[in-house]
């Protein structure tokens, strides 16, 4: 019996594509189901806790009402803008400094020998220590928060980027050398694109750490901002308001991360799709 060989790759690809899209739809349905189940479980636990640990844990309904009230007040938006500004400055500072350090330590043995022990120590120190020392040294102004956050987040970013530089494709480095591609062109067109997945991970980590720590910085040393408002609610034992502010801030940060960073990721990694 003659054997028929299909030389058209596109035929095979079409089949694979169709199978993949079925798989993707099935995965998406599973993911959505899982997410809904997680939220329902969370609400159930919250509801039980609100009965068991009354009055310290407010009910979901009371918290939603407090969120609605917060959304209607001008003070909330002032605090939010202030906190967002601080998050963005700390995030940008830590990402830029951390990425630069990561690339330098990844490429240079001398830089690695110097910075690696410092980064290891910096990673081991609990974040509140930086915040407390920065407030003691610089007072409760904006500088203290920025310095503390940058020092706390930079080592995470630097570590991720450094590992990615070490794990790069050295075959591509050889190709670049053989074709005598100038060093800066090679840096921007060969090295940096290889670091993009790690840089995106670093950016996500940096962003998540920034907004969590900014709230702590504001709670400990700032008179204004969402962190300060949350701490004020805690001092006055207004748990509904405290939880409402925390949830609103978390939702906003998630939206920014999934929206802006997700879009950036899709754009930068479109060649993989």
């Amino acid at each position: 019996m003659p054997i028929r060989i299909n030389h058209k790759a596109t035929d095979g690809e079409a089949g694979v594509g169709s199978h993949e899209s079925t798989m993707q739809r099935s995965d998406l349905l599973k993911w959505r189901g899982g997410t809904i189940a997680a939220f329902v479980s969370l609400l159930a636990v919250w509801f039980i806790l609100s009965i068991v640990v009354r009055p310290w844990v407010p009910t979901p309904a009371a918290t939603v009402l407090a969120m609605y009230k917060a959304l209607g007040s001008a003070e909330f938006y002032q605090d939010l803008l202030l906190t967002l500004g601080r998050v963005l400055v700390a995030f940008a500072g830590a990402t830029i400094i951390g990425s630069t350090l990561g690339i330098a330590t990844g490429l240079s043995r001398r830089a690695d020998a110097f910075f690696r022990p410092l980064l290891a120590i910096a990673l081991a120190i609990p974040d509140p220590v930086y915040i407390i020392f920065a407030i003691l040294a610089l007072g409760i102004g904006e500088q203290a928060g920025f310095v503390a956050l940058t020092i706390a987040i930079t080592p995470f970013v630097a570590n991720i980027v450094r590992s990615s530089v070490h794990a790069r494709d050295f075959y591509l480095d050889e190709m670049v050398q053989v074709y005598r591609i100038p060093i800066w062109t090679a840096f921007w067109h060969n090295l940096v694109p290889q670091l993009v997945p790690a840089l995106l991970t670093a950016v996500r980590n940096s962003f998540a750490l920034s907004w969590k720590l900014v709230v702590v910085v504001e709670a400990l040393g700032q008179p204004e901002g969402l962190g300060a408002a949350i701490f004020q609610s805690f001092r006055l034992l207004r748990m509904r308001e405290m939880l409402a502010l925390a949830i609103l801030f978390t939702i906003l940060m998630e939206l920014i991360e999934r929206g802006a960073l997700g879009r950036l990721e899709r754009r930068l990694l479109r060649w993989r799709q």
Partner: peptide, 17 residues
């Protein structure tokens, strides 16, 4: 320095270009 061409065992193209 002279320019030489090199076809490697693997293609070694930059996948993001």
């Amino acid at each position: 320095a002279p320019h030489v061409g090199y076809v490697f065992q693997e293609h070694r193209l930059l996948p993001w270009r």
